[in-house]
Every structure is written in C-alpha cells, then in structure tokens.
Nucleic acid binder design. Structure first.
Length: 1053
RNA sequence: GGGCCCGUAGCUUAGCUAGGUGGAGCGCUCGGCUGAUAACCGAGAGGUCUUGCGUUCAAAUCGCAACGGGCCCA
C-alpha cells in the first residue's frame, strides 16, 4: 500500500536511501543485473589522496555518476572501479611536514623504509575519508574494490609498461635540462610546474669581446646566478644589430645590441652621448668574447665563448641572449646543436659545486647579489633593476624551480607525436575543441617525458644497470625480478625493498643494480586503463574491455591525465586508451575567481550538503552550466535547486492522502489508462512527459547534462506543479469514486513513476524514495530499486504535439486574463462575467474550443466568448480623433461645428463607413479618411491584455450571482483560515456564526448558505445582521470594506 | 608572449552552430491564493548584450582588435 509522505527533508531522505542501498547492496545488484549487457568500460580519473574533496572533485564524480547511472539503465554492463592516486611528492611533503623534516638528509636519517611506511599510512587513511565524502554525494562507483596505485599489481602494470618502452627503444637515459626543485632535490615534470608572479633582478650585462678592446656585447637576464655557467650568446639571424660608441662619466666604450632596442639599452645605462658606428645583420655577427666571470670561475677560461644564431631570440631587452646550456632548455638545445659544453656547476641541493670556483657551496638563491657585485667590480654591469614576471614553482612545495642539466630517464614520446595526433582525431571529444584545439595544441608542443624522480614514495623504476658495462635491463613483473635475482620472497615492491636486489648482467656477468629513482607520479595514473583490468596478469579482461569507452575530467587534465594516458598507451599499444572524453570545467567562486585557501573563498561540498542536501548540489552542478564551462558557484542557485526539489516532493506528496483514502491501487497502469475517460489535460501532461524523455535522451547522447536537467526542472515547475496539479485538484477532492477522478489518479501516477525513473541518474535519492513508495509499496514484484529499472522509452502513441500547442495558448490566455484582472483589481476569488478572446492567429479557436472547461475554470469566468480572427469585439467603443490640420482647410469657419458633431457621432459607425466607403456624412458636411483617425476604447468594467496570438478581454461587470459567489468565497476562505488556526483536521466538523452588518451583503451570502456550509464542513451555520457571535475562535474581518465578524467552534457530540 | 574557453538585467544564466523586435530564475516592488501551506502563484520595474572597429539592408549572434576572467603553455 502507498504511504503518506512527510515534508521534504533532504538530509533524512538521503540518509535513509543510502542506508537502504547498503542493506540490499543495490550497487552490486544493478551491476549483476546488467552483466550480459553491452560493455561500457569507464576509467575513473584517480583523485589524489591528500585529504578532503572539494567542490570540483564533487562535480567531477557527480558527472561520472549521472552518466554511468544513465548508461546502466540503458542496459550497459559497466566496469567502474574507483581509482586512487596515492604516490608522489605531495604526500612526501605532507609527511615531511608532520615529521618536521627539512631535506632529504632527514629522510635518509629516519630510514627510507620508515618514511615509506608513513606515506602509505597517510595515503590509505585519507582514501577512507574521501570515500565516505564521495558516497555522501550518492556517487556509485566500485568503492569496494578500487584500483590503488600503491598496490603491487598496479606497480607491475607500470613496470610492464616501462619494459614495453625499453623493448621499443623508447626508453632513454640522458643528460637533459629539467625543471628541478632544489628543496625536494628532484626533477619535476613540466606538468608539475606551477607559474606565479615573482620579483626578480632585471640586469643588463656587458660581455667583453676577445679581440676588440673596450667593446662589449650586451645581454639581459633575470637569473644572474646562471652567469657563472655562461657559454655563449645567441642573436637572431635576421635582426639588425648596431655597434655604437657611447660615453658615460667621460669614459668611452663600444656596445653591440639589436638596433631597434638601442634606445632602451642606452637609457638603461644612462649614456648621455652615442654614435652608431656600424650596423650588422645578426647572421653576420662573428664574435668571440671573454668569460665575464673568468676571474671567479677558473673553469670558465677553458671554454671558448662565441655568438650563435637562434630563432628563439626575440626583439626584447637587448636582442642578445645569454646562453647557459646547463641551465636552460633552449640553451641546452642550442648547445647540443653546436656541440657546446653542457656546463652545470650547480648540485642537486641548489648549491654551486667545485666547478663554480669561488662560488662553491653558495646557494643559487643567494648568489644573484654576489654575482652582480662581482660583475660590477669587473666593470661589466650596465644596469640593474627589478622585474615582476611569471616564474615556475614546484607545484607541491612552492619553491622556485631552477633548470639543471642532469641524468634522467626519458620516454621518447616525441617520436610518437605524429601518431598521437592521429589518434586524437579518432577519439570523440566533448566538446569537440577539447581535442582538436586544446589537446592537439598541447601534444604538438610536448617534449620527451622525464619519468624519473630522485625520491622515495613512488613506484620504483624497474631498471637495472650493470655496474661494470652499463648494460640496461627492465623488469616487467615481480616474478621476473624474482627469477632473475634469485630472491624468493618479496613482500612489497616499494623502496627500500627493491633497492638492494641485484641481478647478473646478461652481457658481462657482473652485478647489475637498480637505478635509485622512482617514477614521476603521472606515470602511475598513466597506466590506469590497463592496471584497473589487472593487466598484464589478466589478459582476458584486457581483451574484453580495453580501451576505455569513456573518461571525464577537468580541463587541467589536458596536460595531465589525458596526456599521460595517451603517451603511455602509445608506447604500450600504439593507440589511444580511451574512445571518448568529456572535458569539464573548474569550480570558481561567485566572482569567477579560483577557489583557493589563500583567498578564503573555498566552499566545501559538505557545507552545501549540510544546508541543502546532496540532491540539490547534484542538480545544481549538472544544470547550472554546460559541463565544459567553468562553474561560478552561487549559494542562491543551489537554494533554487532545493526549491525545485521541494516542489517535486510536494507534487509527489500531495495526492498520496487522497489516493490512500480511496484505496487507490494502481495496476496495469497502461491498460487502465487506455480504458479511462482521460481529459484533455491528462492527455496533455502525458504527452509532455514523453516529449521530455526525448529531450533528455537527445541531450545525454552528447553528454549535455545541462540540457538534460534543465528541461526536467522546467517540466516539474511549469507543467506539473504550476499547471497540471492545479487543474486536477478539484477532481482529487471529489468523494465519489468516479472514473474522472481515477483518470487523474492514474495519469498523475504514471507521470510520477516515469519522472522518478527519468530523474534517477541525476537525483538518485529522491527518485528512489518516490519509486519505493509509488511502485514497490504497491507491487513487491517490481525491481528492488529504481536504479534497476529499465530506462524509460517515450510512448509515441501518447504524444500529441497539437494538444501541447493548444495548451500553451490556453496558458497564455489565463495569464493574460489574470493580468487584466489585476488592472481592475478584481481577485481571482470573484468570478467574472465573461472572458472574450480575440485571436490574431489560427489555432487559437481550436485551443479555446477544445479546452474551454480548463480556460473557464482557471480564469474563474462564467462565460468564454470566442471571436473570429481579426474580429473586433462589439463592446469596444471607437473614439473618433479629428485631424484639425485636414478639417480646418476643408471646412474653414464651419470646422468647429463639424468637430462638435463628430464627437457626438457613434464612433463605430463612423469607422465602419470610412472603412467601407471612404467617407461619412454629417449634417455639417462629408468627412473623408484623412480627416480622422480612430482609437479603440474600453468600457470601464473591462480590461484587456495581449497574449502572443491575440487579445483577451475580461468583463468584470458585477451581477447579483457574481456578487453572491464572491462574498460567499470571501467568507469560506476566512473560515478555512480560522480552521487552520484552530488546527482542525480536514474532515472535522464545526459550528459557525457569521455576523455581517451590511444587510444587503447578508442577503447575497445567504443565497449560497448551503454551499458555504459544505465547503467549511459546518454542522450548523448562522448568518445574519446583528446576531451574537461566539465560538472557540472569534475574529473580525474587513472584506472589501464590509465588516464581518465570524466565530467557529468544534462540533462536539 | 602563445593556444583554447568565457564575458548578456543587482546575481546566476538562455539565445550565438544556420544574423531579422533579447527569454528565464533569484533578488526587488506590488498583488493573488489558502484542502502542497514555515508552502504556492501572478504582475511590474530592471538590459549602451564588456568596449571599439569592420562585414551586412540588418549584428548579442559573423570578423578583427582591446579590456576583464579561467585553464594550459613559453
């Protein structure tokens, strides 16, 4: 049997539903149910286990959940292990913080094993916390068996992948300039560099030419600390350069720089006079110069220093670029092209090495000032200032990065770039530009992938190198390592367990040792699509499922997970690891600014849930934006969604007491609906319902979640609550069990059940609650959960677009008439004599004729008058406006008489005559068309309002009948109000007394005494003038200026 | 400096692909309803469609530029 429902309390509903899901293990039942369906392989982008989820992660998981629920109801067999990204520097940094560590030395002292254990503990406990937070959003993923990057089998997937790379000669060890964090003492990937504004030195330095006295080439830099490593200068081959003689403080010297930048440089150096000696094209600059700090860095004097051509030189500052191949990416590449020495006198800790001569032991961050002083002493500092610019930082510890040439391991993904770009085109991107523009752009500009990190908490790089001959071997699995090393038991594949395992070199029989590095954590998640299938151990699952059908992540993952997965997959399998990608946006605050702790504008999902519940948050993030646009969070809008949910709930709740009272037991709804005498409004809402399903399906086909959810809100608010429910109210109150009422019950029931299924992917809790009551309480044989139901299919036979259009017109007329009523301040409670509809277009007549009863009821009109298209209502008067400019010359001195006569004439007749014959005869003369114009006039009791297809007139002329009914309703409404105040039950009977001073009104009200008594459930009702008023509650009222005193009391006995 | 996305009423937004009087919701003002009721409904006011230039008979919509925001990169 159906049960009544309490007022909407999102939190209670959601908690109960989640408990219910747990009890019946709904998630597993659903997946089990669909196991023979079409396979749909979803890979969860693994959130990093640092702590609490934020609004962006919530949105991310809500999108995933809604899409997967939709797919599942459509019959898909879904594979959806939740993922967790658990390795890497972020956790190391947090653990270091907890332990109070400052550098790697502290970790070594503490013991790598102990440190790694702490990291593991941290990751696992945070995973548990975050799981609960996701579940509180109603997100269904496989939480019980998630994939975790710290598991041995996951690590093996990464190892296997690296072995593929090695076999395909895509793994390379080499000296490269990498982004280096001097605090973490490790290389970091391009994707781990975060850019922020900083103030740095902005200095102009003169490099003295080797063979020309007192002549200098001028360079500009923001990193003076790299000057000790300077090897060359780059100029643009097609720029024009000048040799210019300058004078400052009486001293003369010759400078070389780009001619278009000369003015700037001379200003910087505060030179008063100058004379251009020569202009030279960049490519003709053949210059050798002396090391500017040769006196401090002896090693520098061993290197030749020349000027080279480079296209990356821009026309900024001096047009001459300082090149230190050990400290810059462009520099390194230029150096490689010209076989320059890769001089890098800086160590892993950011301190200068032995090679830096006098600077040895100094940290580069402190070196800028010293270097500038030394240059100044050498007379080479032309100008020194400050600049604010964007500079890269370690995205975890925020330390400014430096560029260092170091030995690292690389994946040569640049070799695969062309193929990768082809694969991008095969993937279906939502929106299209996410792939064709954004991702393609990133891939085009990408470099080889540095996968090694000099850290502890990560997947150990499974590369063994021969201590003697340098031979390289990669272990693909744990078993392989055991077999090659002879180690019998290996409890864990992390450091330090694998650090001291050695194998024998297959070439020279000497000892091979593992390189100490761990993987870049982006490599971890890169292998997720096959690691989640337990590949390489489980080949069958891989064959059945891979590649992924769908992934969705934020647009920051273009450079991140979209890319890392693509790269790893190209290396392993030569194709894209996913078939379709939905790129979603970021959550920003109301100002459109990024949410960040430092700005203090962070809103957490928990706050939102605490206030409005998960369902409102879900519907909000789904419907507010297109998925790919950034979402500006707004509390008001979440509140709006909550309001919509509340209305949905009330629509669901309101008929329940009546249905229960009538012992309504819906069975074979479809068949019964076909037999019942449905009213047009019933057919209308059923038609609307089917159309809505189509809209949702169309939107979901393109992952346009916003276009799926917005029309649902609209349907609930506009069609169902504001219209259909209002229309059927009187039918539900009827006490007899007549077919007309049943038709309303069945229709509403059918709509509510369909709606519950339709919204279940997006609002899984409230839909489940509705379903459990409406369906399961009536039919225990039905599927145990709404999420086990099949997706709704639009019933074509119920669609009637003509009817939908007609109803739209009727609603417009109702709105227009209520507008017109307002002009005359006539309440809806008072009936109006008639409503006249004057159509301007076809279709209105049909609508009004077929839906007259609806129109009459909703406008509270005694009569509906329908005119023909273009017909003017006869009650409208026509005012004749004389055109003095035309009348004056025509009638001269009689004009006044003509005008007076015109004003007395019947405007309608004048207009008719002019329109038909072009003239109208007055006693004083003949009026022609140009002499007058016309204006419609409306009688005082009538008001008009336009709607899109015509005009509506409301005639509020009072009749005795109308006044009687109006006053009666005023009385009823006030007594109902008093019943409420006394907290009476709906069916409870009362005794009532109404004293009305105005005898005329008493008479009017008495005409409907029985009607009033019935409406207010009065056992006895006294109405009169000057009678005594008593009862449990007595109140005085002012009804439209008429004084009334009413008293009611419980009928006892 | 480059790529991509975004910029419409006080707030959140629809419309932009396929140019032709800019629609909503919230908030505000006024009103209605009172058997969903610590709910619900209607009306009104409120817009140089970020700015400028261009294409066109016609631009929120197409193009260019600037400004502001976001993500990514150098």
């Amino acid at each position: 049997m159906l049960k009544e429902a309490a007022q909407y309390d999102a939190k209670t509903v959601e908690q109960n539903i989640r408990k219910f899901w747990e009890e019946i293990d709904a998630y597993s039942q659903v997946r089990e149910l669909r196991k023979n369906g079409k396979k749909f392989f979803f890979v969860d982008g693994p959130p990093y286990t640092t702590g609490r989820i934020h609004l962006g992660t919530a949105w991310n998981k809500i999108l995933k959940d809604s899409i997967l629920r939709y797919k599942s109801m459509n019959g898909c067999h879904i594979l959806d292990r939740a993922g967790w990204d658990m390795h890497g520097l972020p956790i190391e940094v947090k653990v270091e913080g907890v332990l109070g560590f400052k550098s790697k030395k502290d970790i070594e002292k503490y013991g790598v094993g102990n440190f790694v254990d702490k990291c593991k503990e941290f990751a696992l406990s945070h995973r548990d916390e975050m799981t609960v937070q996701f579940q509180n959003l109603g997100v269904w993923l496989n939480w019980r068996d998630p994939y975790m990057t710290l598991r041995d089998e996951y690590i093996e997937a990464a190892w296997w992948t690296l072995k593929q790379a090695h076999q395909k000669k895509l793994l390379e060890r080499g000296l490269r300039v990498v982004n280096w964090c001097p605090r973490c003492e490790t290389a970091i990937a391009d994707s781990e560099v975060e850019y922020a504004d900083v103030t740095d030195p902005s200095v102009y330095i003169k490099f003295p030419l080797a063979n020309e006295e007192n002549t200098y080439i001028v360079i500009w830099t923001t990193t003076p600390w790299t000057i000790p490593a300077n090897i060359a200068v780059a100029v643009h081959p097609s720029f024009e350069y000048v040799k210019v003689r300058v004078v400052k403080d009486g001293k003369e010297e010759i400078l070389i720089m780009a001619s278009e930048l000369m003015k700037n440089v001379l200003k910087q150096g505060r030179y008063k006079e100058h004379e251009v000696l020569e202009t030279i094209l960049g490519e003709d600059l053949k210059i050798e110069y002396k090391a500017p700090l040769g006196n401090k860095v002896p090693k520098q004097n061993e290197f030749p220093h020349h000027v080279y051509m480079a296209d990356f030189v821009t026309a900024e500052n001096t047009g001459c670029v300082h090149i230190a191949p050990g400290h810059g990416i462009d520099d390194f590449e230029l150096g490689a092209r010209h076989n320059l020495p890769i001089f890098c006198p800086v160590g892993a800790d950011g301190k200068y090495t032995e090679e830096a001569g006098d600077y040895k032991g100094m940290h580069v961050r402190e070196a800028n000032k010293v270097v500038l002083d030394d240059l100044s002493e050498n007379g080479l500092l032309l100008a020194s200032g400050k600049i604010s610019h964007r500079y890269g930082h370690c995205w975890r510890c925020k330390t400014p990065i430096i560029y260092l040439a170091t030995e690292q391991w690389f994946l040569r993904v640049t070799d695969l770039k062309e193929k990768m770009l082809d694969e991008i085109k095969k993937v279906k991107w939502y929106p299209e530009w996410a792939g064709s523009a954004r991702f393609a752009d990133w891939v085009t500009g990408s470099r080889d992938w540095c996968i090694s990190r000099q850290r502890y908490w990560g997947i150990p790089i499974p590369v063994w190198v021969c201590d003697f001959c340098g031979e390289v071997e990669v272990m693909g699995t744990m078993d392989e390592l055991k077999a090659r090393s002879g180690v019998k038991t290996l409890s864990d594949l992390h450091r330090p367990h694998v650090d001291n395992i050695h194998i024998k070199c297959s070439k020279c029989d000497n000892r091979m040792s593992r390189v100490p590095d761990v993987f870049d954590v982006w490599f971890d998640s890169a292998v997720a699509s096959w690691a989640t299938l337990n590949f390489p151990h489980d080949q069958t699952a891989f064959k059945e499922w891979w590649p992924a059908d769908f992934i969705t992540e934020g647009h920051d993952q273009t450079r991140g997970w979209f890319y890392s997965q693509m790269g790893a997959s190209m290396v392993s399998f030569g194709k894209a690891p996913y078939k379709s990608v939905l790129m979603h946006g970021f959550t920003l605050d109301t100002e459109g600014k990024k949410m960040s702790k430092s700005l203090g504008n962070v809103v957490s999902p928990e706050e939102v849930i605490a206030k409005y519940g998960a369902e409102s948050l879900r519907f909000y993030v789904l419907s507010q934006n297109a998925p790919w646009d950034d979402l500006k969070f707004s509390w008001d809008e979440v509140g709006n969604m909550h309001r919509m949910m509340n209305i949905l709930w009330n629509v669901y709740r309101f008929p329940l007491p009546y249905m229960i009272l009538d012992k309504f037991n819906p069975q074979d709804v479809e068949d019964v609906l076909a037999l019942l005498p449905l009213r047009l409004e019933d057919r209308w809402i059923l038609s609307k319902m089917q159309s809505l399903i189509k809209t949702v399906d169309t939107a979901m086909a393109e992952y346009n979640l916003h276009k799926a959810t917005r029309p649902i809100s609209e349907f609930v608010l506009e069609d169902l609550s504001r219209w259909y429910v209002q229309l059927i109210r009187p039918r539900t109150w009827r006490e007899a069990n007549d077919p007309d009422k049943l038709a309303a019950y069945y229709t509403l029931y059918e709509v509510l059940v369909t709606l519950a299924k339709l919204i279940s992917p997006f609002a899984p809790h409230i839909s489940e609650e509705m379903y459990q009551n409406l369906v399961r309480n009536v039919n225990p044989e039905a599927p145990a959960s709404v999420h086990m139901c099949k997706w709704v299919i639009p019933k074509e036979n119920l669609i009637n677009t003509e009817l939908e259009k007609s109803m739209d017109i009727i609603r417009e007329i109702v709105e227009a008439s209520s507008n017109a009523r307002q002009k005359l301040k006539r309440k809806l409670r008072w009936p109006v004599k008639r409503i006249v509809v004057a159509p301007k277009k076809e279709g209105v007549a049909e609508a009004v004729e077929s839906l007259e009863s609806v129109l009459k009821e909703q406008t509270n009109a005694k009569e509906i008058v329908l005119l023909n298209v273009g017909e003017v209502w006869e009650q409208l008067g026509v005012e004749v406006l004389p055109n003095h400019a035309a009348l004056g010359p025509a009638f001269k001195k009689d004009a006044g008489k003509v005008i007076a006569e015109l004003k007395k004439a019947d405007g309608r007749e004048v207009k008719k005559a002019i329109l038909e014959t072009g003239s109208f005869e007055l006693k004083a003369g003949t009026i022609t068309q140009e002499m007058v114009s016309f204006k419609d006039t409306i009688p005082p009791a009538i008001a008009s309002a336009a709607f899109s297809a015509g005009d509506a007139y409301v005639d509020t002329e009072l009749t005795r009948e109308i006044e009687s009914e109006g006053y009666a309703r005023e009385v009823i409404r006030r007594i109902q109000d008093m019943r409420k105040e006394l907290d009476l039950a709906v069916e409870e009977e009362i005794n009532a007394v109404v004293e009305i001073t105005d005898a005329n009104v008493v008479e009017l009200v008495l005409e409907l005494k029985d009607f009033i008594a019935g409406e207010i459930r009065a056992k006895s009702l006294d109405i009169g003038s000057g009678i005594e008023v008593e009862g449990a509650l007595v109140k005085e009222w002012d009804v439209e200026g008429v004084k009334m005193k009413m008293g009611i009391g419980r009928q006892t006995g």
